[in-house]
Design a protein around this nucleic acid. Structure first.
Lengths: 234, 234
DNA sequence: TCAAGAGTTTGCGCCAGCGCAAATCGCCAA
DNA sequence: TTGGCGATTTGCGCTGGCGCAAACTCTTGA
């Protein structure tokens, strides 16, 4: 195992308030791994042997239904924990996690979780804070699905991605990993056809620029108006 | 304060694995309260001063949007915790909780949470298990909203309620608290009109019997077929 | 007993968005 | 450079379910 260093994780939200010597102890028990694009980090129903911290890249968390339909639960960005099934009393992963691009992550055996929780209370508190905000997000999504039109949901999804992973370019803010119309459809409960139509219309109005697996938001503010339903469709 | 006794909470999932003497200590710090039908237990955005355990009755957890739309997040049954914002690092409640019928609950000041978590690790582990399964539920709901037709969603919602709170009667399984068409609509992201039409149709086919704020499921099995989309609509 | 209000049912018209299908485009490998 | 595959675009027709409106029916309180 190459030399893992506390500087990898110092400053991340999950480790806020953890003593420096403890960071060393934590990193010392991790192994690092690379995941190639489109390869799974972990799989739904699989025994939850490890939990992970994403260091670099982006991971798509997908829940699949018995009948084959798939829904994207969320995207994980660098610095976030994933696969923390054990912290929630589960022994299997609840979803598939697929690398959206080549990724680097740290992994710890799940059986370390109870020890970590005991020895590093800040770490465990931060983790539960994360879980709490994911629960919020999930509820927010239920509400969006319940009450909003497709164009609002797609606009919200793009804005969320921009906020989470946007990279400034001279054309606007680029979503920093390959994302297809199909992916956006699976995030918003619609079809790739409808997403394509919406993006085309928005491109015509200068709100976004998009290409193959690529979306750039040019005018976030006007997109927000659509997301909030304060715009009459033309 | 009337004599609170450990027998109130012994045997509940949240307190599994907690020593009997600890149960006494826990109950000793609780106050009990009654909430009249349609009165709030706690309110969205309000300072989260307490967390609660429902002893009797049913509580509706509702998230409201700035624009006035409302979505029912879940129903709480006797024995369940609610308002555990602090365990998730929040200082305010994320939703409104309204008594669906006259209720009895125990309440603890939120500042006890860290102590409880420290002193009664089984209790805290059970709580996080609950949070974990609520997160699962929320994701399941997102998926249902994304991929299912209205009739499937309503059928699923009824089956969930039946499983959670069903009481056997000679006509079938009764959902054991007053629930309106509007409530079901807010659980499934549709309108009371559509719910009414569906229930009427199902009543005609003998699947359910329903009246004012009352639903009895007569044939759960056939309802499940609808929920799973294995039935052609007539 | 009666009136008022809350909850429910039902008819009707409409349209957002899906399903299907076909064409086109862009990228990569050979 | 070319072929092939995956991603995207776009047209067209259809329909599930919503919005609106009106009538009806319990339940409750005076």
């Amino acid at each position: 195992m190459a030399n893992l260093d506390r500087s990898l994780i110092a400053g991340l939200f999950a480790f806020e308030g953890v003593a420096v010597t403890d960071l060393d102890r934590i990193v010392g028990q991790a192994r690092s791994l690379r995941i190639a694009k489109d390869q799974p980090v972990f799989e739904q129903e699989q025994e939850a042997h490890s939990f992970f911290l994403l260091l670099d890249g982006h991971v798509r968390v997908v829940r699949s239904m018995p009948d084959g339909r798939e829904v994207i639960v969320r995207y994980i960005s660098p610095g976030e924990l994933m696969g923390i099934a054990h912290a929630l009393g589960r022994t299997t992963y609840p979803a598939n996690a697929i690398a959206a691009v080549d990724c680097v992550a740290l992994a710890w055996p799940s059986q370390l979780w109870p020890t970590f929780a005991m020895d590093f209370p800040s770490f465990s508190a931060n983790t539960y804070k994360t879980v709490g905000s994911r629960l919020q997000d999930a509820h927010t999504r239920v509400i969006e699905m319940s009450t909003e039109q497709v164009d609002q949901r797609v606009a919200h999804a793009l804005l969320k991605l921009v906020k989470q992973t946007g990279r400034k370019t001279e054309e606007g803010i680029l979503i920093d990993f390959p994302i297809s119309r199909q992916d956006i459809a699976e995030m918003t409960g619609t079809t790739l056809h409808t997403v394509s139509r919406l993006l085309s219309a928005w491109e015509e109005q200068g709100l976004v620029k998009s290409g193959r697996q690529k979306v750039t938001v040019v005018e976030p503010h006007r997109l927000l108006l659509i997301a909030e339903g304060r715009v009459e469709k033309s």
